[in-house]
Amino acid sequence: MSLISAVNLTKVYGSGDTAVRALDNVSLQVEPGEFVAVMGPSGCGKSTLLHLLGGLDRPTSGTVTIDGHSLSDLSDARLTELRRHKIGFIFQFFNLIPVLNAVENAALPVTLDGVRQAEAKERATKWLTRFGLGDRLDHRPDQLSGGQQQRVAVARALVADPALILADEPTGNLDTRSSEEIAALLRQVANEWGRSVVVVTHDPRIAAHADRIVFLKDGAIVDQTILEPRDSHNEAVVAEKMMAIGD
């Protein structure tokens, strides 16, 4: 069963003559452990789609089902609860709290959720260590590079053990090298830890890590690409491609 099932999502902002159809009858399924990139020009509805999938906004019509729960059937309180347990969010701006160190920042979602401090910090430490920040645990955001801050933000998104990670331009504020690292990390989150990852991005190099790319234009899905995993025995074919592209 799909982890996310969005059916005929339409979102209209405003009304009458000034109404803007940000999303027009979009349907999308995401499987457990799948990494999906959503691409398209500015104003195509990418972020609107992400907000509807994450229950941050409600559609004008259509339904979103996450792990068997239909979001439209939930009260605001239950929706908030589902968001906290099932979904981790990553944003372009890392949104870390300046006065808290890496562990405290990463532990925050479960601390707010009533998990004991010690356990919350232990979980946060586990993710941060996996992400190569084992020696930066007590650093505050201003003592970390952009790439390191975003890794803390990814750890924070995973600390409540969600099945789904939603990321809105997660590398928009990073240099090329750090962007690659975050993209590879998200790939790992899907592969090794079986989470579904949906990333809104305009960066082809981030999308290149995905299993599938969904292209939006004017609020509708215009195309989808399923990326076949590279066959490691097929090096000669890749070399040929490189030559063809290079010169």
């Binding site: 190099r205 999308a207 290149a208 995905a210 076949e228 590279r230 491609k241 490189m242």
Partner: peptide, 9 residues
């Protein structure tokens, strides 16, 4: 995109 995926991997 498929080529980019392959080369990135």
């Amino acid at each position: 995109y498929q080529d980019l995926h392959d080369l990135t991997a």
